[in-house]
Write a protein that binds this DNA or RNA. Structure first.
Lengths: 119, 119
DNA sequence: CAGTATCCATAACGATACTG
DNA sequence: CAGTATCGTTATGGATACTG
């Protein structure tokens, strides 16, 4: 089995799960899957995210090599965020989870409601 | 595209991602994939988790219908946690992500180190 | 346009001790 | 055995205002 080291505190699973666990990284990944976007484009596409948090998310993903940040020396400034090959390769697995979520959210909501009276 | 509603605040993606985003849910899921386990078994298998947090995790997953909690009226008490069909169905997508993590953790670590001098 | 800076609220997580 | 209770720390995310 390849799940053994998932219980190691230093395991890769933890690191990646921490990344996709935050609210915004997955949304950035899905947004950029179609192509490059600028900061404000991302901000508009992903409703509810503040610039501070979006910046944090982008910097973290850049640090992990999931995307690149390209600054154009223009006025007004332009910054393009683009998924790397590594970032694209994560899209498939993440899409599998989001697809599962869409398929099964109904059952989850039913379970949440149904358990109340048994507790 | 089926990613549209991922940007809806009430979207299923958010709910599921919040669940697998916490440190322990995925480890519980992976642990129970092989079969039922008792509370203390889980606690020993998943190093570093406190009883309080493990209980919280199990209750949340039970509420979502991912696992069942069966209490045996015995002395000493025995409680078995078992993955539901729904829980098992989530194992595949999650395993895809953990597998990706194991395959690509090396590149992530390299990126983290390489970016330092460019900032 | 693309961010930074500052402050704040919350909650996730952990340590420890105790109980049906 | 399988939790619960209490307390404390820290990390995350958000609101708001300002800047190169």
């Amino acid at each position: 089995m390849d799940t053994g080291d998932a219980f190691d505190p230093n395991c890769p699973t933890r690191l990646v799960l921490d990344r996709i666990g935050d609210k915004w990284s997955v949304l950035v990944l899905l947004s950029l899957a179609d192509g490059s976007m600028r900061f404000t484009e991302l901000r508009n596409r992903i409703g509810g995210v503040t610039p501070k948090v979006l910046t944090q998310t982008l910097r973290a993903m850049e640090g992990d090599g999931l995307l690149t940040r390209k600054v154009f020396a223009e006025v007004p400034p332009r910054v393009e965020y683009t998924l790397t090959e590594l970032g694209h390769s994560l899209h498939g697995p993440v899409a599998a989870v989001t697809h599962w979520a869409e398929q099964n959210i109904g059952r989850i909501m039913e379970s949440r409601a149904a358990l109340d009276h048994t507790r």
